[in-house]
Write a protein that binds this DNA or RNA. Structure first.
Length: 838
DNA sequence: GATTAGGCTTCG
């Protein structure tokens, strides 16, 4: 008996990925999709049952502005209040959590008010009991309105499905026998998910004093700015087909939790705004649990909301509402506002400019200079702010090259903070930018007679008319349009023709936090030091990953990203055997498997051996037989294939072997050029089961496909004696063996800041690494080289951000069996940069 | 520990 290698039949190159790369499952039995889960004491401590990246945070360490994606709080329910209904029709209830392990049990940091909203109420209401120990993750931290009165934590927790909240209850034991299935296995009781029916109030039906949900089209907005108080503030005026309007004043300590509106005409959905009276009218402010979705206002644009919520309910009714509002908003010319390009700017005009930041500098204490461009050219002179070049942050080469397309914007007062936090390369909308002609000096007219006064651009202080700066992500529609404009400007510029690196640099989307990489100078440096290079398609632009994920295959892309993970981690697992005929993929048999297979063979051989066959030399080989030293019953037979020429050196000769052990096979294969394991159980010498190599040639172990091979008697080798062609392919052919090839199969996870992309590296992996998969199996030096390469591309134990940039070609395709079609990505035309470069 | 802002142009 021997272990058969597992053969995966595949219908496409992608299918086996699903088999090989089983996603690593979190520790314990916790699925990550259910918002409410029960943990059990006998399954071990809480930490062991939660996903391993989750860490506990104490109540006292909670802060208003922090994101707690990988943190959880733990506490006991001290009090639980009955649920009540909000004006929105949805339920909410309050609990008080006590941190049992706190250092200061009596401090006001040891108990915290916790509010549960929406459908999570239905799920938790009856399951959570006073005294239960709970673990909460992905909550929102807001200020407690009652801390002064109740003496509890100054912050409070808000939980809802929209925030992606996970509630874990730590049950002391399985109390109810009903929770045992009929096969005797305890099951975890899971409340059923119920959709909450949100109701949305038309704007003309709004009454004061209630908390409601609304939809609307943005008529006016102020992007989030720091208020004079403790919070960020944003003002949003929305309208709807009822022809009413609503002013919303929104506050949050975290600007990210305010609606992400990019322009007038965007569609918003607000949950939990409170209507109150102000100046004899009604206005809305955000109520506890407030959340916002924002959609591009263009009819037919993807229904992908901008939100910081991890999950949100978005039904087909919601889809219809958004589309309806988009159509209505676009038909109404009073809402629509045209975009202004630099080339169309009129003097004494206020306008919104969507552009890319080339450079910035602090001019003085009251102003920051932003050098931006939008791909168009202003036809008259532009004012250039005199500034010391050394204080300009940005790539000097870019600044110089784009000087005739760049415009100087001076940013004042309260906008300085926002301007300072911008990174070169970012895409922006500067709202309510003032275009102003410079006042002509009366004393000394310009030397040129027809001189036009220069145009200046100011972003004045204050927030009136929505003045401010919005950072746009690379995948939004306005940035797509902007990029087209930038690209065509560059290709139209004779000076820039052929300078494609600049184009790439400026098109590469960056994550705001990558402060280092987002300076154009650093980008250029990274470009030169890219750890992989593409071997073709240098003319195509770099596409952000998020954009790739939004498109339908088949497509080819060029990406620039970092490698944040690869699988399998053990490199020997990345080498597989591939059958080009049936396209199956199988594991390379390991030594144990081969050893077992060989033992099975010679055990059989000993019993059935026919000395008449065995001892005779054939016409085309000479035979030698001896007894294994340590195993007296085992006979080892070697048939030396004759050659037409003079006796050749062992390293060039071919032998057929029988009855050998694994270690003998290794030793023989090191001495002789070609070793063919055979057996003589039948009358003629034949090949073995294809679980073992059918040929070892120059120490390379060749395998045949079990599905596609039709092994012939070894006598079939005789014609090769005449032709003298002893290549593995020729041997395989006459022996009726379908040769399997060694291939690398790896999954790379790329991150370029806009998203994550899993791409498969396989049929071009040898050229990618510059290493043969077959050679790596037998060469320690190559194995080390491969490890070094992977450590360079994806440094172990390092922050992924610290890894090098990779330049890659990736193609997308649909694959799968029948109904289960999925999109896959495959790396091509890409190679690792020369070792001395990386 | 409540306040912030509550659209409606700076003045460089």
């Amino acid at each position: 008996m021997h272990t058969r290698a597992v053969v995966f039949n595949i219908v496409s190159p992608s299918y086996f990925l699903d088999i090989i790369f089983i996603p690593s499952s979190p520790r314990g039995s916790i699925g990550l999709t259910m918002p409410f889960q029960q943990l059990r004491e006998f399954d071990g401590p809480i930490e062991a049952q939660l996903p391993s990246h989750m860490q506990r945070i104490e109540f006292e360490k909670l802060q208003l502005f922090s994101a707690y994606d990988d943190k959880y709080v733990e506490g006991t329910i001290l009090m639980k209040y009955p649920p009540h209904e909000l004006g929105t029709g949805e339920k909410a209830f309050k609990m008080v959590l006590e941190e049992s392990t706190t250092q200061q049990p009596m401090s006001n940091l040891s108990t915290i008010n916790t509010f549960v909203f929406g459908k999570l109420v239905d799920e938790c209401e009856h399951t959570l009991k006073q005294g239960d120990k709970v673990v909460l993750s992905k909550f929102q931290v807001t200020k407690s309105a009652s801390a002064s009165k109740d003496g509890r934590h100054r912050l409070q927790l808000e939980l809802s499905e929209e925030m992606g909240t996970m509630v874990f209850v730590y049950a002391k034991s399985v109390k109810e026998p009903a929770a045992v299935s009929n096969v005797g296995l305890p099951i975890i009781e899971r409340p059923k998910l119920r959709m909450h029916d949100y109701t949305y109030v038309p704007l003309n039906k709004i009454k004061g004093g209630v908390t409601i949900n609304v939809y609307g089209v943005v008529k006016f907005f102020k992007p989030p700015y720091r208020s004079r108080g403790t919070d960020f503030s944003s003002t949003v005026t929305i309208v709807d087909p009822s022809n009413a309007r609503l002013n919303c004043v929104l506050f949050n300590g975290n600007a990210d939790l305010l609606p992400k509106i990019y322009k007038v005409g965007d569609v918003v959905r607000f949950h939990r705004i409170k209507i109150q009276e102000f100046n004899k009218g009604l206005q809305a402010i955000n109520a506890p649990g407030f959340s916002a979705l924002t959609f591009d206002g263009t009819p037919g644009a993807p229904l992908k909301p901008r939100t910081t919520s991890r999950s949100y309910q978005f039904t087909s009714t919601d889809q219809r509402t958004v589309e309806e509002l988009r159509r209505w908003g676009n038909a109404d010319l009073s809402i629509h506002q045209p975009t202004t390009k630099l080339s169309e700017v009129k003097p004494a005009e206020y306008f919104d400019l969507t552009c890319q930041l080339i450079a910035k500098a602090q001019v003085d204490r009251s102003a920051v200079l932003l050098k931006v461009w939008d791909g168009t050219k202003y036809p008259h002179p532009l004012w250039q702010v005199p500034v010391d070049e050394n204080t300009l942050e940005g790539d000097p080469a870019d600044i110089h090259r784009l000087s005739n397309l760049a415009m100087d914007v001076l940013v004042y007062d309260n906008h300085i903070g926002a301007a300072n936090s911008l990174q070169v390369g970012m895409y922006l909308t500067i709202h309510n930018l003032h275009a102003k002609l410079a006042t002509l000096s009366t004393e000394k007219p310009s030397s040129s007679h027809e001189a036009m006064p220069e145009m200046e651009f100011h972003l004045h202080g204050g927030t009136s008319y929505g003045r401010g700066i919005t950072v746009l992500p690379g995948d939004c529609s306005d940035v797509q349009r902007l990029k087209q404009s930038l690209e065509s400007a560059l290709s139209a510029d004779q000076d820039s023709l052929g300078d494609l690196s600049l184009l790439d640099k400026l098109n590469t989307s960056k994550r705001p936090s990558e402060s280092e990489a987002s300076s154009a100078a650093t980008i250029q440096r990274c470009q030169q030091e890219s750890a992989t290079v593409i071997t073709a398609h240098q003319h195509i632009r770099t596409t952000p990953i998020q954009e790739i994920l939004d498109q339908t295959p088949p497509q080819k892309y060029r990406i620039r990203a970092k490698l944040v993970n690869y699988e399998p981690r053990a490199l020997h697992q990345s080498v597989k055997l591939y059958c080009p005929k049936c396209r199956s993929l199988q594991e390379v048999p390991n030594d144990d498997d081969i050893d077992t297979a060989l033992r099975g063979l010679y055990n059989l051989g000993c019993m059935t051996v026919d000395p008449a066959i065995q001892s005779h030399d054939a016409l085309w080989y000479n035979t030698a037989t001896w007894e294994a030293e340590e195993e007296r019953r085992r006979r080892i037979t070697v048939h030396f294939v004759k050659t037409s020429e003079a006796p050749s050196a062992p390293e060039h000769s071919t032998i057929l072997v029988e009855g050998v052990s694994l270690s003998e096979l290794y030793r023989l294969s090191e001495r002789f050029g070609r070793v063919i394991p055979t057996s003589s159980r039948t009358e003629c010498l034949s090949l073995n089961d294809l679980s073992i190599p059918f040929l070892i040639e120059d120490r390379k172990w060749h395998y045949g496909c079990k599905n596609c091979s039709h092994p012939q008697p070894v006598n079939a080798l005789q014609p090769l004696l005449q032709s003298g062609t002893w290549e593995s392919s020729a041997i395989a052919e006459v022996l009726g063996v379908q040769l399997l090839s060694y291939v690398f199969v790896m999954k790379f996870t790329y991150d370029d800041g806009s998203g994550f992309l899993d791409a498969l590296l396989w049929n071009e992996a040898e050229s990618f690494f510059g290493i043969s998969a077959a050679d790596v199996m037998i060469d320690d030096v190559l194995q080390e080289k491969l490890m070094r390469i992977m450590d360079t591309l994806c440094p172990p134990r390092a922050n992924p951000d610290d890894g090098p940039w990779l330049e890659c070609c990736v193609k997308s395709y649909y694959a799968g069996d029948g109904s289960e079609q999925k999109t896959y990505y495959q790396i091509f035309d890409t190679v690792v940069a020369e070792a001395e470069d990386i």
